[in-house]
Amino acid sequence: MQINDLLENTGEWLKGQGEDADIVISSRARLARNLVQFPFISRATQAQRRRLEELLRDTITTACADANLSYFPLAEASALDSRVLMERHLISRELAEGKGPRGVAISPDETISVMVNEEDHLRMQAIHSGLDLKNTWEEISGIDNALEAHLNYAFSPKLGYLTACPTNVGTGLRVSVMLHLPGMVITKQIEKAFEAVTKMNLAVRGLYGEGTQAHGDFYQISNQITLGRSEEELLESVGAVVPALVTYERMARQTLLKENRPTVEDRVFRSLGVLQNARIISSQEVLLHLSSLRMGINLGLISEIKPEVVNELFILAQPAHLQKLEGRELGEHGRDIARAGFMRRQLGMN
């Protein structure tokens, strides 16, 4: 499989299926693991990183044969290809922008990805559409078990799985749920809700994780703590706040409709108008309007556009995807023109 082949399809997690999929975009579980016989990546030599990559690539492809993973070495990949993987949430920004021997193994439906030589030797994730933490965790735990049969993990009975950063030590597990919360943003309830979430030892982040702004009203809720709790307790701590946020978001949307239907409709249809007619549009502006459009579809104000089409557009509107779709490298202004044209075609205009 080549990176370009990924562009033929959409990741399973964007299909918009599963529980509360109108608000819960995806559920993700990520494990950090290191091998006992090598130093962590920041202290590893080039030769050690090369040996790590070879060993891990072979183990991943043989031990997880059922998952049918394809390995992409990133040392020789173009910056554009790496960025495509990042925009699809298959690799982190750190791996995309990193240097030296490193790579990622990906399943055909993009539900599983295993990063090699990121901050830790192994960072493996499972991601699914909608609220589905238990299955997501079990899937990645299965991959972990398959790998562990062939590898000697750095593990201490007292501290658990040892990681390069002490904020991941213990379970090495980060569970996260991505939510689309435009109603709470418009009604200005979002800050208050996140204050409460933060008090429960959970972190709130933007669309592309650590250090990113919340674009397009997308927010990721994840566990802050990785040590001293079992994996099930961590799943529970994240899973427990989601139903409340889903309820608040539904209430916010209904209140908006009931109290000020014309304002909501105006916002949604103006966004549709911009997306169908703009000639130049930045990725920031596109996210803003796609977010209103997505809410409009979920509220039943627009029926001719399918929700999964909009989910996909959030990813396809990103810079690297756009350049791949156009088949050439573009500067910022060129991308903004191409993006506007792409949106018009996708949303039935010329």
């Binding site: 735990s141 007292k158 501290l159 658990g160 799985y161 213990g170 379970t171 040590l227 001293g228 709790r229």
Partner: peptide, 9 residues
């Protein structure tokens, strides 16, 4: 982390 003792997998 609120703890220095692993209790998971």
């Amino acid at each position: 982390q609120g703890s220095s003792r692993h209790t998971g997998k």
